[in-house]
């Protein structure tokens, strides 16, 4: 039991260090690579905590490698638009000038109701008040008002 407690603390501190190293402050704004990294880190980190038969290094090494890979990928994403598009895709326009783009809605499996809910959340009554709704790489929807509305809101 003592080993489990010590391992828990060690793994927790290592995870904190990994998050700090990756530099993510807004966990809600994750790109695809970051989301995958978070899932893998949480699964890998807990293994040596719950199973003392596994050497601690078998949790630490993958944690270090995945964190480092995420830093490398995000570095190239910040330097190359082409690489960013390859890794995380492009923002997708769901609504333009009041009209839904059905092909994009089907491709993203997002319904009109979802889009309208996001429009209302952004403070607009309906699609008629909105210029564009864009599905960003992070999976969030941005609502851009018509020019006469005078405000720009991000989702």
């Amino acid at each position: 039991m003592t080993n489990i407690v010590i391992r828990s603390v060690l793994v927790y501190l290592l995870l904190l260090a990994a998050m700090r190293f990756m530099g993510k402050r807004q966990i809600g704004e994750m790109q695809m690579t970051e989301f995958i990294t978070m899932i893998m880190l949480s699964e890998l980190a807990i293994l040596p905590v719950t199973d003392t038969d596994i050497p601690l290094l078998q949790g630490i090494v993958p944690l270090a490698v995945i964190s480092s890979a995420e830093v490398v990928f995000s570095f190239f994403e910040s330097r190359s638009v082409r690489f960013l598009r390859f890794m995380s895709g492009n923002p997708i326009i769901l609504l333009d000038s009041g009209g839904y783009i059905e092909k994009n809605l089907r491709m993203t499996r997002i319904s009109r109701e979802d889009v309208e809910a996001q429009i209302r959340t952004s403070g607009y009554a309906g699609p008629d008040e909105v210029e564009k709704v864009i599905l960003e790489r992070t999976g969030k929807m941005s609502v851009l008002p018509k020019r006469e509305s005078g405000e720009v809101n991000d989702a």
Binding site: F21, V61, A64, S67, S68, F75
Partner: peptide
């Protein structure tokens, strides 16, 4: 700096594993 550290970590781990 973090990028260089990440590359170094990956190379060191790869070498150590081998």
């Amino acid at each position: 700096r973090n990028f260089i550290a990440a590359v170094v970590i990956i190379l060191v781990v790869a070498g150590a594993v081998v």
